[in-house]
Design a protein around this nucleic acid. Structure first.
Length: 275
DNA sequence: GGAGTTGTTCCGCC
DNA sequence: AGGCGGAACAACTC
């Protein structure tokens, strides 16, 4: 579930909670694929380093260490951080445990095991495929109407849904916010982006940012698994207008919300409002 | 017991 | 070549 607003919330939490702390111990209870290095090397390189900053890269989270190394996480569907200030039970499906010099602990767990943890030197960041091919982040200055139009012209035949979901074009939007963005923009998910009017383009451009920023304000959407670093739910689910509302009434026109499948993922929309 | 689930990558097809 | 859609990854819930 974690999309840009959820990952941003967690990153901000981590910055508050662990920046400036020294990692005193790293535990990897069960071997898993760390992509670049062995778990032994991971533990060696991370132990007794200071975390000076957490940063979001698309839907990834990076922890910058004081030796120039960077620990990267991708939560995929169900990755979860849990932070404890005291001795407490280790959550199920834990992948990695960090202990800090003040006695606190940070666990990263993932029930579905898709979650990614890796460690590289900061010089190697741009060789990581996900990062190298990442699209424009809608919360940055690079996200301009001009750049938005360029993307549309470059990918004219993509449907709006597929365009919004493609992390190589604009990063951070996932299945929940894609439906919400299209609803607020009053745009039909199935039309090709080249068919959008100038007004629709402008509206879509603006709405992407509005929806994501609003969700960050609300500390993310908890649909099922997502929790922040201390186990709290977000509150943005109260703002959802179409996601998971199949056969329920559109808040605007009372028509039933419908569910379709695009690129083997659900899309929810109002057939009357979104044309 | 079958279908569906938030993300990404890879593979085959066109 | 490059874009696209579908399958796969794993485990859980309804």
């Amino acid at each position: 579930m974690p999309e840009l607003p959820e990952v941003e919330t967690i990153t901000r939490d981590l910055n508050q909670i662990i920046s400036g702390k020294k990692i005193t111990k790293v535990t990897i209870p069960d071997e898993f694929d760390l992509k670049d290095i062995s778990s032994k090397e991971f533990i060696d390189r991370a132990t007794s380093k200071v975390v000076f900053k957490a940063k979001r890269i698309g839907k990834m989270i990076s922890l910058q260490l004081n030796n120039g190394d960077v620990i990267l996480f991708h939560l995929k569907m169900t990755g979860l951080f849990s932070f404890f200030s005291k001795e407490s039970e280790i959550p199920k499906h834990v992948k990695i445990i960090f202990e800090f010099d003040d006695g606190t602990k940070l666990n990263f767990s993932d029930v579905r095991k898709f979650g990614v943890v890796r460690l590289v030197n900061k010089k190697e960041l741009n060789t990581i495929k996900y990062i190298k091919t990442l699209g424009i982040d809608p919360t940055t200055e690079e996200y301009t109407l001009d750049n938005f139009f360029k993307l549309i012209k470059k990918h004219p035949n993509k449907t709006v849904k597929s365009f919004l979901m493609d992390q190589h074009l604009i990063c951070g939007i996932g299945n929940i916010y894609a439906s919400e963005i299209m609803y607020k923009s009053k745009i039909n998910p199935t039309i090709m982006v080249i068919k959008l009017t100038v007004e629709q383009n402008n509206k879509l451009f603006k709405t992407i940012k509005e929806i994501l920023l609003k969700a960050i304000e609300n500390r993310g959407t908890t649909f099922s698994d997502y929790r922040d670093t201390i186990g709290h739910k977000g509150t943005n689910q109260e703002n959802l207008k179409v996601y998971n509302r199949k056969d329920e009434k559109c808040f605007s026109c009372n028509q039933n919300i419908i569910k379709i499948v695009q690129n083997s993922r659900s899309t929810f929309y109002c057939p009357k409002c979104q044309t």
